[in-house]
């Protein structure tokens, strides 16, 4: 039984490592700020949540795992909001989103005027 739960915890951890790796590659390889923020925000959230899920399974039903679940909820709420606000500010300061070179229709389009 303990072997099974450890196996499940390890599977969660490996999944978290996979998403973290994908996020890191995305941050390095993506062409501009917005796509990088997408990679960093979304994928890191999922990676951290999978890590914490693995820790909860490893720990079993204790007070520590309850706290870990609360941390997971907190990360799920805050990380996307932080990414959202960063990209909003970048857009408001006039940073243009990347478009594929040669795509005139997308280049002609004005970015939305946002202001906080």
């Amino acid at each position: 039984m303990e072997f099974c739960s450890n196996l499940l915890a390890g599977a969660f951890m490996v999944g978290g490592v996979f998403f973290m790796l994908v996020g890191s590659i995305g941050i390095l390889r993506m062409p501009d700020f917005f796509t990088r923020a997408h990679a960093a925000g979304k994928i890191d959230t999922l990676g951290i949540m999978l890590f914490i899920a693995g820790m909860i399974v490893y720990e079993g039903l204790t007070l520590v795992s309850a706290k870990l679940a609360l941390v997971s909820i907190f990360v799920a709420l805050t990380s996307p909001v932080a990414t959202h606000q960063m990209t909003r500010r970048a857009l408001a300061y006039g940073l243009k989103p990347w478009v594929r070179p040669g795509d005139e229709t997308a280049e002609a389009e004005e970015p939305h005027a946002l202001g906080d």
């Binding site: 300061y93 940073l95 243009k96 990347w98 005027a113 202001g115």
Partner: peptide, 17 residues
């Protein structure tokens, strides 16, 4: 569109893409 980019706008120059 074209309104000031916020209270801190004039102090920073917009980043060129």
């Amino acid at each position: 569109k074209g309104v000031d980019p916020g209270p801190e706008g004039p102090e920073r120059t917009p980043v060129a893409p």
